[in-house]
Computed example of a mutant assay.
Amino acid sequence: MTRWSEEIAQSFHSGECGHWLPFLPEGVRIYAVGDVHGRADLMDRLFHKIDHDLAKRPIVRPICVFLGDYVDRGPKSCDVIDSLIRRGSEREFVFLRGNHEAVAIRSLTDVAIFENWMRRLGGLETLVSYGIEPKKVLSESGVAELQLVFRERLPDAHLRFLNGLQSSFSCGKVFFAHAGVKPGVALSRQSERDLLWIRDEFLSSTLNFEKLVVHGHTPVQRIDMRSNRINIDTGAFVTGHLTCLIVDREGLSVLATG
């Protein structure tokens, strides 16, 4: 058991999330993975840990839930999506949309959004991962041409993957979203913008959200476990710590890189 698994277990047994029991239906286990941000190396290491855990503890229905933000900032966004597409054909996966995927998709058809994505949100690293030389294209032809090159280099399978991402996922008494939920609004009526972008209003809330919310989006040094939510974005692209929260019917544990 990792240090974080021990801390999660202590928090759980102290009653932090115990009122949500049982978390899941019989025979289901969920492996929820936080923001990857182009760190294909960490994701591959985490997959190895998940596979090892499943080999030791088989279960009828394992589900891998990825919370979004697969691209940008880290160096291997293209490889991350390739790997997720391949893995998604092997067992049950749920891929959620992060705000970075939403912006990347919009950048394909809006030059202003493309430039903002590239210069401020880590899109530059994503372009490089697709074999593009942004500085060269910009110096020779400009932003509009670079946007066109990106549209041409993005494989159809990657575009289908990005367009097919879900806004949220619910199972048993657990609700998964990239950023969180708007307090006071039923989970069934959450807007996509809040699911992908919300921060302070959600993070500071002590309200009961109907279900335990597992989310990412806001990087933390260590898993942030509250009575109504758990944040598992541990800033992988900077820290080297990519985190997976394991949700079993009667408990919680953690797998992590680093």
Rank of each mutant, 00 (worst) to 15 (best):
V36S: 03
I8K: 03
S253M: 08
A177T: 04
D72C: 08
G27V: 12
Q166L: 14
N99S: 11
S191G: 13
V214T: 05
L67T: 06
A179E: 01
H48N: 11
L165Y: 02
G142M: 14
R222G: 04
D82E: 13
N163P: 01
V214W: 00
E210R: 08
I105G: 00
F176A: 05
D82C: 13
L245H: 01
S168P: 02
R222T: 12
Y130W: 09
A179H: 01
L96A: 08
F209R: 04
L165H: 04
F169Q: 04
G235W: 03
L54M: 15
T206H: 12
F66I: 04
G38I: 07
F23L: 09
D69H: 03
P219N: 09
P58S: 10
G184E: 05
A40Y: 07
G180W: 00
F175G: 00
L42K: 02
N208H: 14
R45I: 04
G18L: 12
D248E: 15
D194R: 07
G258P: 00
I63V: 15
G98N: 03
S77A: 15
R39S: 12
I59F: 05
V143M: 15
L67M: 08
P75Y: 03
E6Q: 15
N208Q: 08
L203E: 08
D79F: 08
I8N: 02
I232P: 00
V214C: 06
R97Q: 15
F23D: 06
S253K: 12
T109P: 00
L212S: 08
L108N: 01
L21A: 13
G123M: 09
I63A: 09
A177G: 06
L54Y: 11
I113N: 02
Q166H: 11
P134S: 07
R45P: 02
R119G: 00
A9C: 11
N208C: 13
S77W: 03
R120T: 14
R229T: 02
G216H: 06
R87C: 11
L146S: 11
V28F: 12
W4F: 07
L24Q: 04
W197L: 09
G122K: 05
L54N: 06
W197V: 09
P75K: 09
L255Y: 02
R39M: 14
G122S: 12
V36E: 01
R120L: 15
E26H: 13
